[in-house]
Design a protein around this nucleic acid. Structure first.
Lengths: 116, 116
DNA sequence: TATAGCGATTTCCCAAAGGAAAGTGGGATA
DNA sequence: TATCCCACTTTCCTTTGGGAAATCGCTATA
């Protein structure tokens, strides 16, 4: 009724979806979170677990994820110094999103494969 | 065991997630799908339902979504010609992703709001 | 002493995303 | 006749994403 009539408001959905997209946007953030949640802790291990990622991109994305409190960077003061990346509890809240994307991706690949 | 020992494989999840991200990447694709699924059919209506989108971006994204068979462009040969955008059945398969993102986005906004 | 590995950082570069604003060509409306 | 609406398109520009390769300071290992 508050509408100008003629189009439907979908802002209730669009707005929170955009909030989520802003945090996990780009090609790499979710793959990195998946890798860290799987148990990879070292920079090089994470890098090797995600085909195609370069160290520069990985370093930048790790910083972003740290700022969003999805992972934490732990410095172990041994000789040599070790740096570990661990998932924060908040990262667990992304599991439903990851599962939904994984399921859809698997099905999509099957669909594409069937067609051509 | 096939690993070089030292990193864990997470490719089973990373690969399908990346397949999904490739289809729905960017700021605008999901908002547009949401708008069309909500019932907006006309170019201008879709544009007005998504704050901040420009006609250029909308036109390009609509083409992308058509190619991925998520929406269809219907030409009605009246005077004047009408063009309608309708969701394809395949768009429904995105619902779990949209719901997961919506839920996360709502919770995230609440979390941010509480903190500062 | 030399080499290798670790965890990045730096530089250079290109392509794609995306925003602002104006225009276009047809029909409808006043 | 003038103006408006619709569905875009075009132009110009800036920002962002991301790849390649080299480098760096440190430690470990041969």
């Amino acid at each position: 009724m508050a509408n100008k009539m003629g189009y439907l408001s979908c802002l209730d959905t669009v707005k929170p979806v955009r909030d989520a997209i802003e945090v996990i946007n780009g090609k790499w953030k979710l793959p990195i979170i998946i890798s860290v949640m799987t148990g990879n802790e070292r920079f090089t291990d994470i890098q090797e677990s995600i085909p195609g990622i370069t160290p520069k991109v990985l370093a930048k994305e790790l910083k972003d994820l740290e700022q969003h409190q999805l992972i934490k960077r732990v410095v172990i003061d041994d000789y040599p110094v070790k740096i570990l990346y661990k998932p924060e509890p908040y990262a667990d809240t992304l599991t439903p999103i990851i599962d939904a994307l994984k399921g859809w991706g698997l099905n999509h690949r099957k669909k594409i494969f069937e067609k051509e």
